[in-house]
């Protein structure tokens, strides 16, 4: 039981804080949220296979004594591979959601991608469970919020792409995540833990600001019911 709590506590806390702080007038679309979480769990498989391939078939291994090789490994593996896996799986769910006109608001889209990241982080924690209880507790403070922040960036990129109808935001979001994730891993492995904690703190601050600004309900221009009464409706007698 202690082990299970250590594996998931951080993810549960993040979800609770997000839910309590946002949904005042609406309810979160629970089925879609579950779909996002499952996508995150599934995304571990592709990322794990890719990382394993990288370790076995190339000279770029995460704990290589050569710092350049290990840094390249972090860019290629956790950066490009894991982020694409998470973002890709979340986007697959988004494709369905857009196709069936699911009632996803900007806030719930961000929360969906955070759930993808948290699903990924929980399974990643399970693979790390032999590192000891203390280390698992620390993982709840550092890598799990870091993954959640990556989900925030993904969600924000998707919101921007959906609002403006442009795919460039997806690429920008992905590249940003690759840089931040790889940078965090390189710092965490090569420098004292306080530097990694500083990165996580900055990310959490940005995520909090983003989350507080995210609209709980769909803006009018994003709904099919949108019409401009000044244009679409006939003038009343009073007018």
């Amino acid at each position: 039981m202690t082990m299970i709590m250590l594996l998931i506590w951080s993810a549960v806390v993040i979800m609770l804080v997000m839910g309590v702080s946002k949904y005042r007038y609406t309810r979160p679309p629970l089925v879609w949220m579950l779909g996002f979480f499952c996508a995150g769990v599934v995304s571990v498989a592709a990322a794990g296979m890719y990382n394993g391939w990288l370790m076995m078939n190339t000279r770029f291994t995460f704990f290589s004594p050569d710092i350049v090789d290990s840094s390249i490994a972090f860019v290629l593996g956790p950066g490009m591979g894991e982020e694409f896996s998470k973002f890709g799986m979340g986007l697959v769910i988004m494709l369905f959601a857009v196709a069936v006109r699911a009632p996803l608001t900007p806030a719930s889209r961000i929360q969906g991608f955070v759930l993808v990241a948290l699903g990924f982080a929980v399974v990643e924690n399970i693979t790390y469970q032999d590192v000891g209880l203390g280390n698992l507790l620390v993982r709840g403070f550092l890598p799990v919020p870091m993954h959640a922040a990556m989900g925030f960036i993904h969600g924000t990129a998707v919101n921007a792409a959906l609002k403006r109808g442009s795919g460039i935001y997806l690429f920008v979001g992905y590249v940003a995540c690759v840089i931040i994730h790889a940078g965090y891993d390189i710092v965490a492995v090569n420098l004292p833990v306080v530097f990694a904690a500083a990165i996580v703190l900055v990310l959490v601050a940005w995520c909090t600001a983003t989350w507080l600004r995210a609209p709980e309900e769909n803006p009018l221009e994003e709904t099919d019911e949108y019409h401009d009464p000044w244009i679409d409706e006939a003038p009343t007698e009073d007018y």
Binding site: Y50, W53, L54, N57, T58, F60, L76, M80, G81, F84, G88, L91, V92, M94, L95, V98, A99, A161, L162, K163, R164, G165, S166, G167, L170, F171, Y174, E222
Partner: peptide, 28 residues
């Protein structure tokens, strides 16, 4: 916008996936 988003998403997945495969080939 939704239709453009769908197309952009598919384009994104295909291009990044292809890029990763190319990187894997070069690494190997």
């Amino acid at each position: 916008n939704a239709m453009r988003f769908l197309k952009a998403t598919i384009r994104f997945l295909a291009s990044v996936g292809l890029a990763l495969f190319c990187i894997m080939y070069l690494l190997d």
